[in-house]
């Protein structure tokens, strides 16, 4: 299963490193990353592969969200299907 991770918040050092290490720790493979700074806001979008993920989806989502809150970032993970359904025919 593939999913999209989005990270939005004020820019600072170590955001990518932090998110990537959580993903690596849970056997989540990163397929693609794009990152920009929009009006001082750090916006990162990752396409990830969860086929070897060691924890249930809800658990991974909670871990990312909680780490994000500690760093004052909004982090979410959603299955890729929802974006495909909405934007592709």
């Amino acid at each position: 299963m593939r999913a999209i991770v989005t990270v939005i918040g004020k820019d600072k050092i170590g955001i990518i490193a932090g998110v990537c290490s959580i993903l690596a720790e849970h056997q989540v493979n990163i397929l693609d990353i794009s990152q920009t700074i929009l009006q001082e806001y750090f916006t990162m979008i990752m396409l990830v592969d969860l086929s070897r993920c060691a924890v249930p989806f809800e658990e991974l989502s909670r871990i990312l969200k909680e780490w994000g809150e500690e760093q004052a970032l909004s982090i979410r993970i959603q299955r890729e299907d929802i974006f495909n359904a909405m934007h592709r025919i």
Partner: peptide, 12 residues
């Protein structure tokens, strides 16, 4: 892959 604008639009 879906582009960044589309992803952010859905989230918004």
């Amino acid at each position: 892959m879906i582009n960044q604008g589309e992803i952010l639009q859905t989230i918004e």
